[in-house]
Amino acid sequence: MPDDPEHDWQRSGYHQFEIGDVLTRGFAGLRDRLKDVALISLLLIGGPGVIVNASSYITETSNVGGPLLVIVGVIVFIVGAILLPAVLVQIFVRGFWGEHLELDVALRDGMARFWPMLGAGIIAGIGMICGFVLLIVPAFILYCGWYILLPIVVGEKRDPVESLTRSWELTRGYKWQIFAIVLIGTVIAALAGAVMGGIGGGVLGLEAVNMDVSADPIKIFLFASMQSLAGVIGTAVSTAFVSSTYVELLKLKGEYDPDSGAPTFG
């Protein structure tokens, strides 16, 4: 930890879950590694996201090569969407502990945890679907209880089932605060999408927004790029919040003392 901390959450003896401080730490992590976050985000989901967003236009205006490009783009996007949070969570958590993790190392370690992440995501997804089938409320409870699943799978290198159990235990007693953080992250992502959509519609025209085959292809792909950028922003912000919440809960549960050094992560 820094000798002269800039934020209250960096000071020793800080043991109260304050939503504002969790958000502040998350935004600070984004600010400190903005260049690396932007680079890896655009690489893993930004570029493939353009193809996915413009898939209907590509399919309707191209021959066999168009659908093939869309299929490849979708596969790359799905892989990137799983891998990107694994890279970012390492950068953020280690950064909150005063460490600087190089991007290539985070990418390598994230790739090594790809299958456990996928497995944990599938199990959590099935659980939340069942929650929605029964009632909506249980699904939200499960989501908040498994909110910090990612840093546990990636950083603590636990198997999917063990990670789900640990996430549930760490979030015990704090699910309402986590729910508030989820709402804030959702609003930010929605605002990013609305702003990009509004700008796109106003500047590029409704034909581009609707992916009309008669629209200018340049405008189509510009709008698809704006949609992709909105997705990048949403993913980066949500992962920063997850990482910040994870660190906060470790302190609250007595597993992380700023004066005695950070626990093993990654």
Rank of each mutant, 00 (worst) to 15 (best):
G49Y: 00
A112V: 10
P48C: 01
V70A: 09
L101R: 10
M111A: 14
I123F: 07
K253E: 08
I91C: 08
V79G: 08
L222R: 03
N53I: 04
P48E: 02
E18N: 14
V87F: 04
I78D: 04
P138S: 07
G49T: 01
D159A: 14
D8M: 06
A230T: 06
S225N: 04
V87C: 11
L222T: 15
V70D: 06
S163G: 14
L103I: 13
Y256V: 04
V79L: 12
D3S: 11
L42I: 06
D21Q: 10
F223G: 05
F132R: 07
E156S: 13
P160T: 02
F223A: 03
G26K: 00
R108E: 13
L170E: 12
L30M: 15
L84S: 09
P217K: 04
G66V: 11
G13I: 02
S260I: 06
T61R: 05
L252M: 10
V237W: 08
V137K: 05
D257P: 11
G121D: 12
I136F: 11
L118D: 09
I141D: 02
L206Q: 14
P160R: 03
E60H: 12
R108A: 14
V52F: 04
D257C: 03
D257S: 08
E162N: 14
E102H: 13
D3W: 06
S243H: 06
L34K: 09
A139Y: 01
R31G: 01
W97Y: 09
Q90T: 05
V133R: 04
M196F: 13
G185S: 05
L68H: 03
S228M: 05
S238F: 09
Y14E: 10
A139S: 07
G127M: 15
A120G: 11
R11N: 08
K251P: 09
G65I: 05
G98N: 07
F241A: 00
F114P: 01
D257N: 12
G193D: 04
W97M: 07
A54D: 02
T59D: 14
S214N: 12
A189G: 06
K157V: 08
K157C: 09
I82G: 00
G110Y: 06
L44N: 01
V93M: 12
S243I: 00
L30E: 00
V50H: 04
V37A: 03
I148L: 04
F96Q: 05
H7S: 10
G66R: 05
L229Q: 05
R166S: 13
L206Y: 06
S41L: 02
S12C: 13
L69V: 13
V22D: 00
L170Q: 11
G193A: 05
E60V: 06
M196N: 07
A236N: 06
S167N: 12
A224Q: 00
G125Y: 13
S167W: 10
S41Q: 00
L204C: 08
V247R: 00
R25C: 01
W176D: 10
R166V: 13
V153D: 08
V93S: 03
S62R: 02
A112R: 15
Q10T: 03
V22C: 00
A208N: 08
E162Q: 15
